[in-house]
Nucleic acid binder design. Structure first.
Lengths: 154, 154
DNA sequence: GTTGAAAAATTCCGCCG
DNA sequence: CGGCGGAATTTTTCAAC
């Protein structure tokens, strides 16, 4: 399997189980992994201190909250050295949930959620396109999301 | 704000808080939102039944587990009607964590994690490229991920 | 890594506005 | 009916081994 110093099979199993549902009680994890509840607690604390586990979050169906459009944005910069500066501005746009500096076609790649096509148009036109250093953008609208999981380590 | 039937400000605040850290105790959420712990519990149960909240998961630093490469894959299909068929095959590749059917440049857009460039090459060559119906792919390697949050509703 | 016990949170239910 | 409060149950958390 995976060779990472300081992390063993048990740690990976714990992470694997909690990645699917972060609210499973440690006592239940303990049974499945054949250790005591206290050990699961100690392991998780270690993993958090190591920075392997960064926290937990809710899985949310955005469309049920009125955010019907999930889209990716490929951004071309005028100069790739502008990344940090442009990323700072992108952070201020609440519709944007992740920002990636990438090799390949685009310089920056961004994921965002919008309520509808008008909202998307507004964000693009009034917020993204106004940022200095952005040459042009390309929009990929997600029509269907088939999968959304965490990687399997076991 | 947002008009979604059956969901009010309090629900959105609860979701907002738990989206940042799914393990905050309901009693603590209750204090911040000025309702009782029982009410937070009832609200969350309602949101889960409505399918707004799909569950919870761990935020994991994949690089600390030896998965140093996060990449996107833009996939061109021979015919876009092949989506379901190809998506089924992609699901069987454990390195792939999300699959999107998109408008724009690519037909399918995929996110994946690999240990290193060799691992990435293997996945592309031995797994992805072997799938029937895929014309060609384009790889965008993430050099830096600046942001990863859930959308702010409040 | 385990155990056990104190502290805290969850969860459920009857009551009230 | 939605929200509250309290009580039983479960979980978390921590110290000693």
């Amino acid at each position: 399997m995976n060779k990472v110093p300081g992390i063993d099979e048990i740690d990976l199993k714990i992470i694997g189980l909690l990645a699917e549902d972060a609210k499973i009680p440690y006592t239940e994890i303990a049974k499945k992994v054949y250790v005591s509840g206290g050990t699961v607690h100690v392991r998780m604390k270690k993993l958090e201190e190591m920075g392997v586990v960064l926290g937990s979050s809710l899985k949310i169906d955005y469309s049920k909250l009125g955010y019907d459009i999930s889209a990716f944005l490929g951004i071309y910069l005028e100069k790739s050295s502008l990344y940090n500066q442009v990323a700072e501005q992108l952070k201020n746009i609440p519709e944007i949930v992740s920002i990636h500096y990438t090799t390949g076609n685009y310089n920056i790649f961004v994921k965002m959620y919008c309520k509808d096509t008008n909202h998307l148009k507004d964000v693009l036109h009034d917020k993204v396109q106004k940022i200095d250093g952005i040459e042009r953008t390309e929009t990929l609208i997600t029509l269907e999301e088939t999968l959304n999981r965490t990687i399997k380590f076991q």
